[in-house]
Simulated scan of single mutants.
Amino acid sequence: MDEPLRPVGDRWALRFERRFAHPPEKVWRAITEPEHLSRWYPFPATELDPRVGGTIRFSDGESAELQAEITEFLPPKVFAFREYDEETGTHELRIELHPDDDGCRMVFTHTFADKTWAAQTETGWMHCLDALTRALDESV
């Protein structure tokens, strides 16, 4: 299996591939509709304006708030957005869906600046993608 961490210019990218036994349209709903996105993403999504330039708001309902800008939105193929965190800087996330027999293959890429966060981030995404698999298998 390929190493998920790769250099991309002066930044780093974690790249994961997952195959789902669900059609791209179902996976698309799980990654772009706030109520479904909140079931697997690290922060609950409270709002999502589905268009390039649209905003995604994440909030834990208490003190943590995060905002992202949608940079690509091509249903049901590509969903990408950019987050900014004061502690860790700019993060770019890109999700591609590719039809694959009776399901689809997802390519999930997270690009960031500080390599020291890579191992922790990789572990976190593995848990999140496992949660996405469970959410898809349960319904959506």
Rank of each mutant, 00 (worst) to 15 (best):
A30E: 06
S38L: 01
S63A: 15
R134S: 12
P42S: 08
E17P: 10
R82M: 10
E86W: 07
R105Q: 09
K115D: 00
L14N: 11
R51Y: 02
T116I: 03
R6V: 03
L14T: 08
P7L: 02
A30I: 02
P42L: 02
L136T: 02
T109M: 04
P4Q: 07
E65L: 11
E35K: 15
E17C: 01
G124Q: 07
F112T: 12
I56D: 11
G124F: 00
A135H: 14
W12I: 00
T32K: 13
A118C: 07
R19Y: 05
E62T: 12
D49V: 00
L14W: 03
F58T: 08
V140C: 13
D102M: 04
A135D: 14
L129V: 03
F16E: 13
P44A: 00
A80V: 04
D101C: 01
L37E: 09
T55A: 11
A13N: 11
R105V: 01
F58W: 06
L132F: 00
E65A: 14
M126C: 10
K26H: 10
A13I: 07
R57G: 00
I56K: 15
T121W: 05
G9D: 15
R6D: 13
D102G: 08
A131V: 01
T111P: 11
W125D: 09
L74N: 14
T32D: 09
R105G: 01
V107W: 04
F20S: 04
T109C: 02
L37T: 06
W12T: 07
T55Q: 13
M1F: 03
D102E: 12
D85H: 15
R11A: 00
D10I: 02
D101G: 06
L74H: 15
V107I: 08
P34Y: 03
G89S: 05
K115W: 00
E69W: 06
D85T: 12
Q67F: 02
P76W: 02
F79S: 12
V107L: 07
L136I: 00
T88D: 13
H36Q: 14
P23H: 09
G54A: 06
W40H: 11
E62R: 13
F108N: 11
T116G: 09
L93P: 12
L48D: 12
D102Y: 02
R15C: 11
P4G: 05
K77F: 01
E25L: 04
I31Q: 08
F20A: 04
P50W: 03
